[in-house]
Nucleic acid binder design. Structure first.
Lengths: 129, 129
DNA sequence: TACTGTCAACGAAAATCTTCGTAGTCAATC
DNA sequence: GATTGACTACGAAGATTTTCGTTGACAGTA
């Protein structure tokens, strides 16, 4: 079975994961190219980070080709939930309601988005019946 | 006016802020006592952290008494929004809806809590009219 | 075969975060 | 005024995170 207890990715690691989730399995150079568009960073910096992430288990590595291909080990959804759960404990006393309320109040969601959230609420309440 | 760009508190700093928000202005020893209940930590460690937080502007310090009294500089609500906004950018591509949906799906809120969120949605939609 | 470009590995430096030991200050008490 | 206890300041060590320079391996090409 897959080992579960992956560490919380750091800021720099999360930037790399974002690229991997967007592109799918990628080489270091490909990730590097994408990151270059939004920030200044060295190739070896990205390489080192991805090697560390591989050691941590955050990504898996296919070494069959000389250009190693990296892939996120945990899906974006799972990681998002991990980060939220973590933030919940650290800053919201474990109250998901408070978190959701703050998220809703601070950021403006469009009417359609609000409707979508409302549908989700309906689903949840149905599940509680 | 109050300076605004406070840094994102680290994990250890957030633990201290949680105590300050709960207790109100407190001395190092008071914070230390509370933290001791849930984890092993040295007095000087807490002191040093609070000194650093004071330098960063995360807390203010009243030195009139020999026992310096520390107070959170930013309210809990504001900090929560800061952390959420940060997480939003780093892990949710800036989509608050996705964040809220994940928060709702992963953690079970009670029926009353769901109702509360629904009321908040009503408010928001009213505002959009 | 020698040259050139691309790649991963390694090590190390810099920055930040977390921890605490030691020293010095001050106030109350003996 | 000497001792004791509570407090802050200082400095430093260890851990983690972020950065990148250098090296060596390899593959294609002149």
């Amino acid at each position: 079975m897959a080992s579960k207890n992956l560490p919380r990715p750091t800021d720099a690691e999360l930037e790399i994961l974002n690229v991997l989730w967007q592109r799918g399995p990628s080489t270091v150079r490909e990730v590097y190219e994408v990151l270059l568009e939004s920030k200044e960073i060295g190739y070896t910096t990205v390489l080192k980070l991805m090697q560390i992430m591989s050691e941590k288990g955050l990504v898996s590595r296919d070494e069959s080709d000389r250009r190693h291909v990296y892939e996120a080990e945990r899906a974006q959804d799972e990681t998002q939930r991990q980060l939220l759960s973590d933030l919940l404990d650290r800053a919201f006393n474990g109250s998901p309601t408070k978190l959701v309320m703050q998220a809703l109040s601070s950021k403006k969601a469009s009417r359609e988005e609000l409707a979508e959230i409302r549908r989700m609420l309906d689903e949840l309440e149905k599940g509680k019946k």
